[in-house]
Computed example of a mutant assay.
Amino acid sequence: MKAVIIEGYGGKEQLQYTDRNMPVLKDNDVLIEIEATSVNPVDWKIREGYLKEKIPYDFPVTLGLDAAGTIKETGKKVQKFQVGDKVFTRPDITRNGTYAEYVAVDEGLVVKKPDNLSMEEAASIPLVGLTAWQCLVDFAGIKEGDKVLVHAGSGGVGSFAIQLAKSFGAWVATTCSTDNVEFVQSLGADKVIDYRSENFSETLQDMDIVFDTLGGDIQQQSYNVLKEKGCLVSIAMPPDQDVAEEYNIKAGYVFLEPDGEQLAKIGEKLENETIRPVVGTVMDLKDIKKAHELSETHHAKGKIVLKVK
């Protein structure tokens, strides 16, 4: 099968579109023929070696953490699926990746694709959807009436997080560039802060939740807009617990865990159109270097999707 691999850590020149052996199917696995996958910032962070202490890999590594496609084979203990089912998934990060024509995934991490989504749209969802869910629902305990700030609302995670927060009845503020103001408003953002002309920390106050996707100075300034006993949740860097204690807030870093049950709940919101997928760019798998280059700019709008089939 065709796949994109890296044989060592480094820049985008490490990405090779090449031939690989088919994945080995375990008893509880389904073999998915992938029609579309997507690029997430964590992909190039893995490629660069930023996560090598957290996730030990044996080279060569097939990258990719989102997949949508059709089940071609099932392990002998599989009960939920059959050959021909259209599915989407965020597989286990330590197994075979999804920049490939096929992937083997434990059936517990696989969900039937909502009928109203194309394969490209379905492939854009698992990682960003689960990330937003685990940050806003699991960690922050979002509820109706909460005031939520989502940083970088036009990106893959941000564009999903705005919609997820709105689906729980929250009031949502977000930051973005001038070009994306109308876009994030179309996702339901109640207040949009153009970071080129306005400082969010001078504009907002008494927020219940801040969803930090950027880290650094942005995270530091975020403490100032939270109410006492509010919540700062980050996917960029672990917050300083001494500072959190000083401000009397809950703060934490979330690293996504794959979860089929949560993905099914997200699928329901997509099926009833409470949330819509946001596909910004579609490329072919063999154009993977260009896709990584775009992701590394931090200015991709919505998700970067790769057509495999």
Rank of each mutant, 00 (worst) to 15 (best):
P238K: 06
D240A: 09
D240E: 11
D240H: 08
Q241S: 13
Q241K: 12
Q241R: 08
Q241E: 15
Q241W: 08
D242W: 10
D242T: 13
D242K: 14
A244I: 01
A244D: 00
N248V: 07
N248P: 06
N248S: 13
I249F: 00
K250G: 07
A251I: 05
A251T: 06
Y253A: 12
V254A: 02
F255K: 06
F255D: 04
F255I: 04
F255H: 09
L256G: 04
L256R: 07
E257R: 15
E257A: 14
P258F: 02
P258Y: 01
D259C: 13
G260P: 03
G260V: 05
Q262F: 11
L263H: 11
L263I: 12
A264D: 10
A264F: 12
A264S: 12
I266D: 06
I266P: 08
G267T: 07
E268L: 15
K269F: 09
L270G: 07
N272E: 10
N272R: 15
N272P: 11
E273L: 10
E273G: 06
E273Y: 05
T274V: 11
T274G: 09
T274N: 12
R276Q: 14
V278K: 14
V279M: 10
T281Y: 12
T281D: 14
T281Q: 12
M283T: 09
D284E: 13
D284M: 02
D284C: 01
L285H: 05
L285V: 04
K286A: 07
K286E: 07
I288H: 02
I288P: 02
I288E: 05
K289G: 10
K289C: 14
K289L: 11
K290Y: 13
A291Q: 02
E293K: 12
L294R: 00
L294H: 00
S295M: 03
S295E: 00
E296I: 03
E296F: 02
T297I: 04
H298Y: 09
H299I: 11
H299A: 14
A300Q: 00
A300K: 01
G302A: 06
G302H: 04
I304D: 00
V305L: 05
